[in-house]
Amino acid sequence: MSDASLIAATAARYAGAGRFAQGFVSGKLRRDPATAAILALGADGFGHLLDLGCGRGQLALALLLAGHATDVTGLDRAGSKIADAARAAEGLAARFEAADLATAPLPDCDTAMLIDVLYQMPGGLQRDLLTRVARVARRRVLIRAFDPDRGWRSAVGFAMEGAGRLLRGEIRRAAIAPLPLPALAAPLQAAGFAVRITPCWQGTPLPNVLLVAERQPDAS
């Protein structure tokens, strides 16, 4: 199945969620550089995929429909988005649950995925979550992160995130607090993962990067 056909098949599952949600899912999958990057990585097989901060779950479901994941567990604190994800996943090996990532128990998985979620949390909670993720992920951790040290790209990212929060009425949320990339990598490296980081901002002015952590064979 081509990426275009896969995106169309995934978006069609959100028909019951309303026109806005279906349009958002389709646009996100088509335009977000993370989609192509993670679909390409998925050719190696992700096994049981744990999607943390999954939102409506569209990327995880696309990976499942592509055969890149055997089953999916998605967690997100937004109950309305989880409801959309659960409806879209009907008949598939996927479950989505509302949960606070700061406190929720994390199930064992082969691959853990965190897309644009860490920088929305305070620094201490980011480190704690990464430490817990490193305990449950048997093979791989994928993180699309906001790099605060990319100069003008970082400045644009902060400005766009602030404007988006203002438009959504979220001005009372905690400050945007992306950790430097070495601080993100450290808990994973300490747990025996090898980490590589590549840009993931194609076609955008944003400071997004993709961190891929692979557990080494001799790591416990």
Rank of each mutant, 00 (worst) to 15 (best):
A104I: 06
E97G: 03
I115G: 00
L64F: 10
A93P: 09
S154P: 08
R168S: 12
A155H: 07
L142K: 09
A62H: 10
E97T: 15
L65R: 15
V133G: 11
A93S: 12
Q126F: 11
R132Y: 04
A60K: 03
G151R: 03
A137F: 07
A94G: 06
R165V: 12
L101A: 03
R77C: 13
D110S: 07
I82Q: 01
L92W: 02
C109W: 12
I82R: 03
K81D: 15
I171M: 11
A60S: 15
D76G: 04
R77N: 14
R168W: 08
A99E: 07
R87C: 12
A69F: 06
G79M: 09
E170A: 11
A89G: 06
D71I: 00
A159F: 13
R132Q: 05
R140E: 14
P122R: 05
L130F: 05
L129Q: 04
A62E: 09
G169Q: 05
A137R: 06
P178V: 12
I143M: 02
D128N: 12
D100G: 09
D76W: 09
R168H: 11
A174S: 13
A177W: 00
G164P: 01
P107C: 09
G67F: 03
I171E: 09
L129H: 04
A86C: 02
L64C: 02
D108K: 07
L101T: 01
H68D: 04
C109G: 06
A104L: 04
D76S: 13
R77W: 15
L118E: 11
A104S: 12
V141Y: 09
F146V: 12
L125R: 14
L75K: 04
G164Q: 11
L167M: 13
A145R: 01
I115C: 13
I143L: 13
I176F: 15
T73K: 04
E90C: 05
L101W: 13
D110P: 05
E161N: 14
P107V: 11
G151A: 15
A94L: 08
L142F: 06
D108T: 12
F146C: 11
R132K: 05
A85S: 09
R140L: 15
A104N: 04
D110I: 00
D147P: 02
A104H: 03
C109L: 08
A98Y: 01
A93K: 11
P148Y: 04
A62C: 08
L65S: 05
I176D: 12
P105H: 08
A134Q: 03
A62P: 11
G91H: 10
G164R: 13
A155D: 13
F146H: 14
D116V: 05
G124V: 01
D147C: 04
G91N: 10
V136T: 12
A177L: 02
R168L: 15
R127V: 15
Y119Q: 07
P105K: 07
L118H: 01
R140T: 10
R139I: 00
D84P: 01
R87S: 14
R150K: 15
A93D: 14
F158W: 12
F158A: 13
A60N: 09
R135H: 14
G123M: 03
I176Q: 14
F146Y: 14
I171Y: 03
Q120P: 00
R173F: 07
C109Q: 09
D84Y: 05
V117D: 03
G74W: 00
L63A: 08
Q120W: 02
D100V: 06
R138F: 02
